[in-house]
Computed example of a mutant assay.
Amino acid sequence: MAVLETGDEVIVPEPCFVAYQPTVIFAGGSPVSVPTYVSQDFQVTVDDLEKARTPRTKAVLLGYPNNPTGAVLERSRLAEIAEWAEKHDLLVVSDEIYDRLVYGVEHTCFSSLPGMWERTIVLGGFSKSYAMTGWRIGYAAAPPAILAAMRKIHQYMIMSAPTTGQEAAIEALKSAEPYVESMRQEYDRRRRTIVDGFNRLGLDCFEPKGAFYAFPSIKSSGLSDQEFSERLIMEEKVAMVPGSAFGQSGAGHVRASYATSLQNIEEALNRIEGFLKKLRA
């Protein structure tokens, strides 16, 4: 709402967090979806973005590390997008809520790239890296003029973030760093377990490098992602989200969260194995 005029277009790579397109619409803009696929490691390219650009394009909304795929955009590809955005005078809204949860790679903050400080809105928060989901403490970093406009809107939409959550966030910044790294290492262990498990079961799984989701293909099951998810929860009490909920390029996949215990992950894999045996019998 602080940066869009009615009818402005925002390019949104998919699969993506389900709120992205509705947020653009709520702000008066028009989302333009750009599909990415496992064949490209779910990484959007400048060519993909350029094909979607029109004279009405105002911004690009990037969500990396990605929910639902776990993809992390390579620094070289981010740099290409930055150069393209500057060339066409576009804003970049970069949702980096999972920035601390990466594995075997480094996260690059988009606004740190040359020329991007002036045209980037970085979104972050404490829900993921500090395990404060539900406390609703987030933040935005942007050029002063954009932040001033955001504050004007914010003060009429919400009183403030919860005071207890603010106090907890301050304490997290002061003393939680060792726990963040310990949690990241544990997520990495669970990540390898669930990805290896899916591949062992014949559900080809792209290796996620960030966040805490795996995004296996379920095409070998012969079911759609919707059917697979519904039957799995009804028959085996294992919950996963159909990939098509995150955009049509997510069809044929399901999202599985490994933000649970290793014991639960192993039990879920055992139940999925039994489910697949019944399907293939």
Rank of each mutant, 00 (worst) to 15 (best):
P13Y: 02
P15H: 03
A19Y: 07
Q21Y: 11
F26G: 07
S33C: 03
P35M: 00
V38N: 00
Q43H: 12
P55Q: 12
K58M: 12
K58Y: 05
V60W: 04
T69V: 08
V72E: 08
R75E: 15
S76I: 12
L78A: 05
E80S: 13
A82W: 03
W84Y: 13
H88E: 11
D89F: 05
V92M: 02
V93L: 14
V102K: 04
G104I: 02
V105C: 00
F110A: 00
L113I: 07
M116W: 12
S129V: 06
T133K: 11
I137W: 05
G138F: 06
A142D: 05
A145M: 13
Q155Y: 12
T163H: 09
T163E: 14
Q166M: 11
E167M: 13
A169V: 10
A169I: 14
A172Q: 10
K174Q: 09
P178S: 07
V180C: 07
V180F: 02
R184Q: 07
Y187S: 01
R190T: 00
R192Y: 10
T193I: 15
I194D: 04
D196P: 07
F198G: 00
L203D: 04
C205D: 05
P208A: 03
K209C: 04
A214T: 08
I218Y: 06
G222H: 00
E230H: 11
E235F: 07
A239I: 13
S244H: 06
A245V: 10
F246Q: 04
G247M: 03
Q248K: 14
S249E: 05
S261Q: 09
Q263D: 13
L269N: 02
N270C: 07
R271T: 11
I272Y: 06
F275W: 11
L276V: 02
K278T: 08
R280E: 08
A281T: 13
